[in-house]
Amino acid sequence: MKIAVCVKQVPDTNEIRINPETGTLIRDGVPSILNNDDANALEQALQVKDAQPDTEVIVVTMGPPQAKEMLQECLAMGADDAILLSDRALGGSDTWATSNALAAGLKKAGPFDLIFAGRQAIDGDTAQVGPQIAEKMGLAQVTYVKAFELDGAFATVKRALEDGYETLRVKLPCVLTAIKELNTPRYMSVPGILKAAKADIKVWSADDIGVDKTTVGLKASPTNVFRSFTPRPKGKGVSVEGDTPKEQAANLLADLRAKHII
């Protein structure tokens, strides 16, 4: 079995601080990490490999050269190979353009029996790239996967919903996006680290993956970030006092009248 895991290097949001004067994010010195949901995606692929040792797990990312460090960490966790799609032509891609590049990279590195991705990245929070890859590669997809079981040429998965889950049986090959409930990602091992630190990570350019350059990069991106800002912190809410719903409603009305809202 051959499994791809799509991963992304993101700023560690636990370490981000806000400048109290300007209200903007302080990005300097913020460490970069493997995106949380992507670690769950990788863990699931590695669990398949634990059960079927002839499985090959390949991590794929698009990003700047420093994303190699994150790929080394994936190798140290147990991935067999890592591919970095990195090219100035790919820079500034939105989700549509990113999935064009990743789909091209996956086609070149494949074919894969399974493609895992994290549900979403903690920096962009779009949850679009995984599903877009599936669409562009013409594969079935299940998002928000919280449980996974392989049975022959099928996977039985639980897809989390807001108020429950649905169980789906999906034929391979397919794209699955993982959420944190799926598993607990393993630590890097010391032998894994020693091997990964010396590993030669493949870097593929836009030409290498043969992607149409009019479909990648900033210019090809149909969405653009117009402005980013830190939302003002919300004030403390008010809870309406009262022993019965009727009394609470009366208090609320009185309060609204006092403030001339009604």
Binding site: E69, Q72, E73, A76, Y187, M188, V190, I193, L194, A196, A197, K198
Partner: peptide, 16 residues
């Protein structure tokens, strides 16, 4: 620190 030392330290910090 070498790259492997950085990773060993990071892994054990998180583990600890």
């Amino acid at each position: 620190y070498s790259r492997e030392q950085q990773m060993v330290k990071a892994m054990l910090k998180k583990f600890a």
